[in-house]
Design a protein around this nucleic acid. Sequence first.
DNA 1: TCATGGTGTTTAGGATCTTAGACAAGGAAG
DNA 2: CTTCCTTGTCTAAGATCCTAAACACCATGA
Lengths: 182, 182
Amino acid sequence: MSIDVGARLRSVRTTFGLSQRELARRAGVTNGLISLIEQNRVSPSVSSLKKVLDGIPMPLAEFFTLDLNVAPQAFFGADELVELGNPEVSLRLVAAQRNGRQLTVLHERYAAGAATGEDMLAHRGEEAGVVIRGRIELTVGGATRVLGPGEAYYFASQLPHRFRNVGREACEIISACTPATF
Amino acid sequence: MSIDVGARLRSVRTTFGLSQRELARRAGVTNGLISLIEQNRVSPSVSSLKKVLDGIPMPLAEFFTLDLNVAPQAFFGADELVELGNPEVSLRLVAAQRNGRQLTVLHERYAAGAATGEDMLAHRGEEAGVVIRGRIELTVGGATRVLGPGEAYYFASQLPHRFRNVGREACEIISACTPATF
DNA sequence: TCATGGTGTTTAGGATCTTAGACAAGGAAG
DNA sequence: CTTCCTTGTCTAAGATCCTAAACACCATGA
């Protein structure tokens, strides 16, 4: 069976929340090609595979390094969470490896006054979370609400959304999103 | 220009002292294909490239990880030499990375009575070295000689050769070979 | 000088990859 | 129910890869 490029590509693509057509557009190839590669109906040339991975983006070396059926790490110490964000909005990822994961959990922390940005976010997938400290203003679609400790949210990510800490203290949230687009 | 698979392959192949035909034979492809790939006249399919690398052998991930024009490490501490051999014949490599190196230097150590094997060795390339401790019996082609500290050797590796420590103490040699076949 | 055996390169043609476009299935909105 | 948009799949035709065989070159040796 020799390396199963197809499964690797499908895993990576879905992990990044891309459709075959969207990835094809970014990569400058056709969606049909991606379909064929993922079914192992063809063995792509290195140049094609590179074009496809550039659309992710992911280097060839990392692609071939991926271990698909790795025994997944089940427990993570506080210092094993990967820090992603900035001083204003800190995102600490639970399982940062770019494996075939569909679900990512984050420990988010918003400084007083911090927000996810000026514009609304919108992408594929779903998001949900629980506020554990402070107060956060969440706008989803046309609705806005301020959530406090113990309160929670869930929405489809294609709805325009935005988080903003309107309180005076930092706000912490434990959240999950799927697929792993962040 | 996008990754230059050709230069990588040529570098790896020559580093391992293989001709295009010999690698092709091991890989189950034609020598012409290897020539075309090395000239970047084609971008091989992943399956072909995998077959070729299996003939080295080298995994795909390592192949794409190779950094061709890496700023080379110039200095190596004693603990940075990679140990390769067995208790009888110890080989400590100076620059173990499988990069585009044509030359490899080793610190060899033969225990009393140890030898490179029952049979004579014969492969492409050249070898040379200097004995720094003990005494070693070296056979090259039809000639045999015992070398002591300060004495040295040089020969083409295609000549059948064999090292044997005929003394009572361990023998150490600093040697070089090119290409990096060992 | 000619033969032999090694190297890497080239080329025509068959095999495979890649594209463009059509197809079917599923949801969402009217 | 349509209509529209999304998804992934499939298929013929064109582009590219890959093979088999020949080629040119350089050694070594009779």
